[in-house]
């Protein structure tokens, strides 16, 4: 029996309607988001959980502490849509009833972010290599309009094998789009092998440092480390390479490539719940 804490979340300030400076992501909220993500995937019996769990901490931190109503977020690694939906749920922008439709017929919550139906989601993503050009366009629009908004784009590490991602990096660096922060969920695993074995870019930070961008590295599961790395940058784009663990928090999935596609087993599900202090 699991306790739905959504009502309790409704009591906290809405971070989308006020200044973000005083917002703080409570650890118990992050834990609850993890539990709800696991439950949603367990209920729906679908995979892609590994990359959701590696990205959840960063998405929660961004949306609860850094992204204000004027800012923009693009989930370029669209296969982490589950973590995005859970983050929106934690903000009160999706309901439990919405989450129950995940991956079901007639849902707004498709396996990758939809093109319509959820106002917070600006673009349908999922084909890798699209998010960074879109984010660069949003960042350029802000500059042309004299707007100080920040634009965040969350990419996967395997996505840096896409040529269009590098087209966008060249563009953003050349244009000194300092309002653009690019996050890399560097969990080291992709769909059919490790990034090191399939098409190595390691060390990714060294490779990207060849461009005119600020490179920062952090532990993608450590909130203080993430806060430091995601702080506003200087006069050029910022790339934050987050060391993460695919399948974070699920003992049988952590660091396993299979978590890219395979759904939860009951054993893994109950072990993961126990790991975050909930009854298995």
């Amino acid at each position: 029996m699991y306790v739905n804490k959504t009502m309790a979340f409704a009591e906290r300030p809405d971070p989308t309607s006020g200044p973000m400076a005083d917002c703080h992501l409570p650890p118990d909220l992050l834990n609850e988001a993890r539990r709800r993500l696991l439950q949603m995937h367990w209920d729906s019996g679908v995979g892609h959980l590994g990359g959701n769990l590696s990205a959840l901490d960063a998405m929660m931190l961004l949306h609860h502490e850094m992204i204000g109503p004027q800012d923009r977020f693009i989930l370029s690694k669209g296969h982490s849509a589950g973590a995005y939906y859970i983050t929106l749920w934690s903000l009160g922008l999706l309901t439990d009833a919405d989450l129950l439709t995940f991956h079901k017929d007639g849902t707004r919550l498709a396996g990758h972010p939809p093109a319509s139906g959820i106002p917070s989601i600006l673009f349908s993503t999922g084909s890798l290599g699209h998010g960074l050009p879109l984010a660069a366009g949003l960042a350029l629009a802000a500059r042309l309009e004299g707007n100080k908004r920040r634009v965040f784009c969350l990419t996967s590490d395997g996505e840096w094998q896409e040529g269009s991602t590098f087209e966008a990096l060249i563009f953003a660096a050349h244009r000194s789009l300092a309002n653009l922060t690019i996050l890399v969920d560097h969990n080291g695993l992709q769909g059919f092998g490790s990034t090191a074995d399939v098409a190595s870019m390691d060390p990714l930070g060294v490779r990207l440092a060849g461009f005119d961008v600020d490179i920062r590295a952090c532990d993608g599961h450590d909130l203080p480390s993430l806060r430091t790395a995601l702080a506003p940058g200087g006069n050029r784009p910022t790339v934050v390479i987050m060391r993460t663990i695919k399948g974070r928090g699920v003992p049988g999935m952590e660091g396993h490539m299979e978590s890219h596609y395979l759904p939860l087993t009951e054993t893994n599900y109950r072990a993961a719940l126990a790991g975050i202090g909930l009854p298995a």
Binding site: F123, L132, P133, G137, L140, A141, S164, I170, F171
Partner: peptide
């Protein structure tokens, strides 16, 4: 002036950037 942008030889990026601009209400 600065609203004429040579995106270089990268058409995929150029079209994605245009979509981002249009999403913000500009006319690319």
């Amino acid at each position: 002036g600065d609203r004429f942008i040579n995106c270089g030889i990268g058409e995929q990026n150029m079209v994605g950037v245009a979509a981002g601009l249009a999403r913000e209400g500009l006319e690319p």
